[in-house]
Every structure is written in C-alpha cells, then in structure tokens.
Design a binder for these strands. Structure first.
Lengths: 225, 225
DNA sequence: GCTAGTTTCTTTACGTGTATAAAAATTCAC
DNA sequence: GTGAATTTTTATACACGTAAAGAAACTAGC
C-alpha cells in the first residue's frame, strides 16, 4: 500500500504566480488600457515576473485570450427571461450571446473559437438546441441548426468589428466608394441601383432581422411552430 | 497655358519594383510554400529588394493579403449556370463564393473584410441581391439579406478554419470533451443527450443546409417565391 | 545530509511587422 | 549646369511572441 493518507506536498519548485493571477492581471490591463496594451512583456512586469514565466501557466497568448473570453462570459452573461414560444426563445438566447460579445470587440481575435464552450455559455446553447428540438427538429438537426446560428452570430461580429477597425485606418472605404461609382448599370443593375445607399445600409444593425430569418428557415416545415 | 500636351515624365526616383510584381511574387510564395512562409523579408529578398521598399507599394501586410484575395477571386471565381428560380439562384451564387473561399483556407486572416469587394465577386453579389428583390423584398431589405448571407458564409469559413488549425495544436478538443463529459443532464438535458455525437456532428459540412434555411427565412412571407 | 528527480523561473536569442531617418535617383525651374 | 523638389530605396532600430537552455527551489529516497 503506497501513499494511503499523507497528501504529500507537490513536487518541484513552488510556483510564485498562478494562472488565475495571470488571467486576472491580463483582464485588468485590457479593462484599463485596451487589448492593444496587453503584451506578454507588459503582463510579466505588471505581475512582477518575466515573460517566459507566463508560459508555464498559459500555453500561449491565444490561449490567454480564450481564457479572458471565458472569464468575460462568466462575469457578464446573465440568463434572460425566456419566452415560452420556442422560436422566440431561440432568438432571445442567441441575441443575449450576441449582445454580450458585441459589447467587447477586442474579443474578435479569439471569437473564431470553434464553439462558445465557456461553461457559462452552455446554458444558452442548451436553450437554442432545445428550442429547435421543440420546433420539431431531430436532435442532430438541432445541433446543426445551432451551429448555423453560431456561424451567423460570430460572422456578424467579426465582420463588423473588422470593418470598424479598418474604418479608422480609412481609405479602404474610399476604395469601396470607387468600386460603386464605377459600376456598370447594365451589367450590375441592382448594385448600381443601391450604390448610393450601400454604405448607410451596411452600417445598419440588422443582426436581429437576419437571426429571425435564419431561425424561421430552420424551423420551417416542421410539425410544431 | 501650362502643360497642354507634353505628358511630362513622372517625378522623383523611378521605381524598381511595382505593386503587381509584389503581389505576383507573394502569390507564388503562397502557392509554393504556404502562407506561413510569406514574410515581408522573404518577399523582399525574393524580389531582389529590401523589406521596407515593399511598403511603398502596399500599405502593410494586411493590405497585401487583401490584394492576394482579390487576385485569387479574379483567377478562380467562375460564373456558374444559375437556375431560374430566384431562391435557388441565391443559393447557387452564395455556394459558389463559399466553395471558392473554403478551398483556400489561408485566406481566413483577411476574410473578415467588410464585404467581398473584389470586382470579380460583384457579379455574385448582384445575383444574390437581385434574387432577393425578385422574391419580393424591397431593395434595402435585399441588401440586408445579402449581408446576412455574407455573415453566415464568412462565419462558417472562419470558424471551421480556426477549428481545423486548433485541431493540429490539439488539446482544445480534449478540453471540450471534458466539458461535455462533465455535463449535468438535469441542468442541460439536450446537450447531455447529444454529448457523445457533438464532435462528429459539428464536423459535418452543413453549410448548404444552413444557407437554404437562411434564404428561405429571408424570402418567407413575401409575395413571390 | 546528500543526491536524484521534478517543477518553475530566468536568460538569451531569433524572426517577425514596421516606424523613422537618411540616402539615392530622378525632373523641373532657372 | 545647378539647386530645389519629389519619389523610391536603404539602413537602422524597436517591440512583439516565443523557442531553447539552463539555473533555482523544492521533495523523496537513501
């Protein structure tokens, strides 16, 4: 009988910093000065250590950002009142996730995560999948439907955030104007027709409209709903 | 009468490299060795110049990648036969864009462009907008509909490409398995129900299903279609 | 107490994108 | 021709993420 009781202290040199401390300090830097100022060196000095020491607590900077996203989700995601009607329930759950993520655009670099797998987001995923099942989809199709909603949601945030970033660099906007000004109304009549209003139209926030359309389409032709 | 005829040669030191040469060489490097090997220094030596000289022909590396994407689109996008039925036309046009982009995953880093504004992609945009108008949407709603389709399409590609990239790093997959194994079936019954099949389900390519649902939803309740 | 094993931390170094400043190569005004 | 203006190219330098090697601080077995 080897080690029955004695919990035997951990082996090796005792750590002076913890993963929690790393994430918490990173969170503070981002909150106070923006994500651009979060560098491994800066984080290390802030924490009183050296850059490479961090790498014993997070695999790399990308993992650190994922941890920050999880942390952010755990802090700010609040479960909303959900309507009884399943289709509307899906919309409310997805919109809640969207709202939380859109409010923190620095997250974009990580947002391309495969799924939102922070445990605090799982409840929302459950609601969406469950709503789709209640709409009459078999469970596998419901998962596919959730994925479609996630693609749409993540895509909206990433595209809009990148557009906003590029708008400060500007000049790409000018290029787009040029493209629209040079449109041949014979070859591309619809685009020529909306050319002038393209910029304001694409600036509008129509996430909810698109989401409703997608959910309607997913639930269409099903028994219930 | 100042300069009436004489076209007067361009001022300043004559360039030794051109933007076209930069883009073309970059394209070759990416084609032959992958996007990871495309660095400004490598590109410069390949072209017989110095890194900073490139910055007189492209604003920065991101713009270079955008130019590469435009170039790729111009080369590979072929206009498919379009069905007469407007809804199916939209699906075919969007799927063609999706297929071209999905085939070149290195593009992901740029894909978050505001729109696909390469001139060779505009014809597809026209088809989608026009299809939506034919479905009975007013032009503004049609533009919004196109945007929704673009969000969905870009999101799908970005999410899947990132997932693939992380899968080589692995270990995030393991974490996800852990999350699903620890699910409380009382609190999250649907997820617990599909926990085992989550990975294979999310690996399936269901882009077309989601696209059809979205287009159906966008066109729903309209006069025509 | 000593040595081996194990973990964490530090040092050093490399390759990256690109800012900045200076040099080089040309045209234009006279 | 000479000097100013203008454009492109080069040289140098910085901050970044992180790989690699080894030093430091601890426990376990003897």
């Amino acid at each position: 009988m080897p080690q029955p009781s004695t919990p035997r202290k951990t082996l090796g040199r005792p750590p002076r910093i913890s993963r929690e401390e790393v994430v918490e300090t990173a969170r503070r830097i981002v909150a106070e000065e923006g994500v651009d100022r979060l560098t491994m060196r800066r984080l290390a000095t802030e924490i009183g250590s050296t850059p490479m020491a961090l790498y014993h607590h997070v695999r790399n900077k990308e993992e650190l950002l994922v941890l920050l996203l999880d942390d952010y989700a755990a802090r700010t995601l609040r479960r909303p009142e959900l309507p009884a009607h399943p289709r509307e329930r899906i919309v409310v759950a997805a919109a809640a996730i969207h709202e939380a993520l859109a409010a923190c655009p620095w997250i974009v670099e990580v947002l391309t995560a495969d799924d939102l797998m922070s445990t605090s987001a799982l409840w929302f995923v459950e609601q969406i999948v469950d709503g789709l099942v209640e709409c009459g989809l078999p469970p596998e199709r419901a998962v596919h439907g959730y994925r479609a909603i996630w693609y749409y949601t993540a895509g909206e945030i990433v595209v809009r955030a990148t557009a906003a970033r590029r708008r400060t660099d500007d000049d790409r906007a000018t290029y787009r104007e040029q493209v629209f000004a040079d449109l041949d109304p014979d070859e591309l009549p619809r685009l020529a027709q909306v050319a002038d209003s393209w910029a304001p139209l694409t600036a509008e926030d129509t996430y909810l409209d698109g989401l409703r359309a997608l959910v309607d389409g997913l639930a269409r032709g099903r028994l219930r709903c």
